[in-house]
Amino acid sequence: MKRILIILVFLSFFTILIFDVPKYNELNNISVIDKITIKCRDNYYDINMREVTLLRKDNGITFRYDYYKNKIKNINKIKENNLDKYHKVFYYDKIKSIDTNCSNVDDFKKIFNNNINIKRIKS
């Protein structure tokens, strides 16, 4: 038993050193974002995020959508949760599509996912 505990401590130490362990968040506290609208303005980006929540009702499963707005200057910092006003942690890794009027769509693919669906919209 002692050897097992020593091995666990040893592995834990190296795991913390080598790997970036994801932050702890309960599912209740995160908002799963499935769609983002990014509008390029003069010197900032207008972000509109859509959170999806599954609801069980008597007639089956439905989805509820909530919208959150944000304005940022540097698109690379979109994933940093500076939305303290909403008291939520936004989870961006399940985004399915981005609606945008910007030209730099390659940047969006680098930030989110290379396979993400990008749709052009008017300003």
Partner: peptide, 12 residues
């Protein structure tokens, strides 16, 4: 994502 949403709904 669908599985994650089901887990989230269950623990709401």
């Amino acid at each position: 994502i669908n599985v994650l949403l089901i887990f989230k709904a269950g623990r709401a």
